[in-house]
Amino acid sequence: MFKDITIGQYYQTESLLHSLDPRVKIVGTLAYIISLFVVDSFAGYLVCALFLIVMIRLSNVPVGYIVRGMRAILILLLITMAFNLFLTPGETLVKFGFLKITKQGLAFAVKMAIRLSLLVIGSSLMTLTTTPNQLTDAIESLLNPLKRLRVPVHEIAMMMSIALRFIPILMEETDKIMKAQIARGADFESKNLIKKIQSLVPLLVPLFISAFRRANDLAMAMEARCYRGGAGRTKMKPLVYQGRDQGAYFILLAYFCICVALRLLPLPFLV
């Protein structure tokens, strides 16, 4: 089940998209998401989809891999569609008892589905081509102006990065404690809700204790290696914009302008 979720996972390969500065990819993804809400016509969505297809081609990530990731949000997609389909008032097309499908509902549901799919694929393309580390670096760099407002930007980025490092370790630990308690007769599969919650205590208590112990150890190890916050720190892998990154920003800008134009210009052939 969890294996199917490719959202948020990094896909290791070499491509133009992989080699872009992570800041470009974060800004690009945000711009893309906004563009999906700017355009409001099927022609507009076509432009968005085309842009995404080109990006996927540039990322060298197999299409099948991305589509598999979509399966995880299929249910969410269907529910959203159903709500829009049945609950939008307007000109009735079909009627089943108290449920009716309207023309406006149909159009809206289809639009929502397209929007949502493009949004998920677009943002997963960012995580597929960017390592978690690059992402935290980029977030630190992009949020840097907030430092003047006394936002602890470096600390936030460090916490994110440590959390990412320890997620697999804690997952493994959870599995181990779970198995140890099953060996003592624990039942984690009970259908009864109260029993289910009760059964979590022998899992969560040791897990929290272990997490605290690790945090303690890690803090000491970081101090021993002269960690004292962001001040005076240099970077092993500083983020530096290359020529291709500037090119990428230019293309993004052009794309965004087209989307805005599609929305504002009353072109007759647009639905």
Binding site: I177, Q181, R184, G185
Partner: peptide
């Protein structure tokens, strides 16, 4: 019975006796 590596990491109860009773209770 299976005692895992570092089995003390699975202790969770308020006192030793209750912790040991967890298995029989199950």
């Amino acid at each position: 019975g299976l005692v895992f590596q570092y089995p003390e990491h699975q202790l969770f109860e308020v006192d030793v006796l209750s912790d040991v009773m967890y298995g029989p209770k199950n």
